[in-house]
Design a binder for these strands. Sequence first.
RNA 1: GGCGCUGUAGCUCAAUUGGUUAGAGUCCCGGACUGUCGAUCCGGAGGUUGCGGGUUCGAGUCCCGUCAGCGUCGCCA
Length: 601
Amino acid sequence: MLRTHTCGELTIENVGDTATLCGWVDTIRDFGGVTFIDLRDRYGRTQVVFNPDSTPEVLAEMGKLKNEYVIKVVGQVRPRPDGQSNKKLATGEIEFVVNDLEILNECKTPPFVPGQKDVPGEDLRLKHRYLDLRREKMLQTLQLRSRIIKTMRDYCAENNFIDIETPILGRSTPEGARDYLVPSRVFKGKFYALPQSPQIYKQIMMIAGYDRYIQVARCFRDEDLRADRQPEFTQLDLEMSFVDSDDVIGMIDGMMQRLAKELLGLDLQLPLQRLTYDEAMTRFGHDAPDLRFGMEIVDITDLASTCGFGVFKSTAEAGKFVRGVNAKGAAPKYSRKRIDELTNMVKDDFGAKGLAWFRCEEDGSLFSPIAKFFSEEELADLKTRFEAEPGDLLLLIADTWDISCKGLYSIRKRMGVELELYDPKEMHFSWIVEFPMFERGDETERWTAMHHPFTAPRDQDLDQLDSDAGKTRAKAYDLVINGYEAGGGTIRIHDSEIQQKVFGLLGLDEESAQERFGFLLDALKYGAPPHGGIALGIDRVVMLFAGLDNIRDCIAFPKTQKAYDMMTEAPNVVELLQLEDLGIEISKAEKSDSSESVSDN
RNA sequence: GGCGCUGUAGCUCAAUUGGUUAGAGUCCCGGACUGUCGAUCCGGAGGUUGCGGGUUCGAGUCCCGUCAGCGUCGCCA
């Protein structure tokens, strides 16, 4: 080892010790005589002191030092003079007097320094990720990530889970997200697919009798990105045999309690709150609501059907919905202009036709451009239903169930932040359960699976599969933290007949089901135990535990919105020879050569 | 694929209604200083305002296109 201690290690206990430290030059404070250098590594910072009476050789080397040089110093630990300790540093009570200095490596003038106050632009950070990762915040987040994963693994190990790796090169099952494909050299014209999740493998493991499985699994989905979505991400994949929904939920309850305690010092009360899907949609318009604040949706469709406002009335009569939320105390803060912004949001993003609003005045009356269409009694009724008080702003959408859900959900989410309706540091864990088995695909009569096609229906809904599939509820459960879907799971179908029936409802005839999932259907016939599991989005859990609003900051080497790696410049062109090996010819390349288009500008 | 925001010195940002020589802090270079920890002080260097076109007497500012980053809708079983 080149060093005897790390830069976060030396304390008053070490005074008088001789030690050797290695690290990066964080800051240089040169007073002409004495010079201080903060030496930084993963573990912390130590103030290193160069005295004027050092040897000329040491002083000469010291003169060469610049930001981010990598150095080794030999010296003694001594207490700092009275009144000069630095409480911000763990090593702040001591300083390190240098006897010898060796420059292990120089550093070009960096585009940004890790210690600088202003965070550089994200493109620059991603391009020079090795510098960005030196920043305190990144270091803390990645350390938190490591501890979260360790805690998850420890918990699972204590509960008899076995950690098993499943293939990265698998087969495409083109339900769901787009696959990342890998061409085969041996089978020309055939492709592997990178796993969207190890779903089928873990079910096979259950059938094989490995009754508790986990894996920290990398998953890949070739879909457009978001602040909380990356093309490759990590999930804690878990599966259990001889269980029902409550057992899996209970297992994760315990894991969350442990994580919250160990990493945040929070005591979670178990069981975690549960909400059915229908209740979540009715009250919050979304299947992953942020339950840290109220502002619940109020349905006034019945009132609308008898009122004098044509838009409301006709919407109600058409079997659609008139629903709204009460933004408590928002009226003084939301000018017409800001209400217009909200209106444009629900119009542009979700195709709502408009946003109606009522303002509750000081005298308790409701003011609105459309108030004249309502009788005194109806206005009073509105007030009562929304529990409107002076200063409140009521926002209503008259539209389909889907649009009213989406519109009111996004209004609630946005205003929750803008009105500071909750403490952003608060953590709220809950389960959404009893999802529908199926939803209607766009413009088709066909059903699509809400989770995936292996999801088991509730026992009491089995008969409905034939009669009223749309009403069938699944043994499905999502873990929701602060309004984010942190994980989702289901109990699987272990009966090949029911599986065939579900495939049928999804429009997969026996032949094509056999073609795609034949191996699973076969396996189900060889003694499949009842089983189910869950997948937790580790990147998202880290994001939420770290209080961040973007998943890229939780991943060491993330990709941009276009799924581009700015540091390695992947994806990129490959040698013609490689393509020939694979029997691949490019018919449609990007306009410009990637070599010149991506590297600069 | 749609909508929106952003792009000015190495970095973070400013620049009035379109107005004459595009500023500040930091970083960098040189100098001073023996107790700082966002060191301080003095001096200096550093710009084709992402790129291409247009409008105008005049464009960082307005318009069109394009590239990049971000946000969002679609999409994400």
